[in-house]
Amino acid sequence: MASYSEKVMEHFANPRNMGEIANPSGVGTVGNAQCGDIMRVYFDIDDKGVIRDVKFKTFGCAAAVATSSMATELVKGKTIQEALEVTNQAVCEALDGLPPVKVHCSLLAEEAIHAALWDYAEKNSIAIEGLVKPKSDIHEDEAEEEDY
């Protein structure tokens, strides 16, 4: 098992913003069950484009849960543009780092946020500057790992 920072364990044990939002402004799901992680992010965005509330649900390891928790913390109360600037590196750093094999989990958090924003943009027929259509499965380009 990977060795995690105290902050990762703290967010895993007490995840922030876990749950769902009824009638969300945007919702996005990324990952796939075959690889072992799926992340879903819900946004409540007001008419000024501020993320008033955010919730997540995650199927995955402790790193996946902790990055979901931290990423949602980092975008809460931010504008859409500010939320787009929250990168996987920022999530990683805020958690005092992740073991190398788990860095892909932070990628998933960034992707989930982008997917939920994409959904919001589509629902409102708007274009968000700098947002590209997210891949539904972030693992699809990942090379097969040599196991020994």
């Binding site: 990977a2 364990m9 072992g36 995955g60 390891c61 402790a62 790193a63 849960v65």
Partner: peptide
Amino acid sequence: EGESLLLSLEQRGIMASSGSACASGS
């Protein structure tokens, strides 16, 4: 997922193992 399950068990003092990919690092 198994690794989350293992870590949650560990927080309650229970030591076990899992066949999940995340727990094995592959």
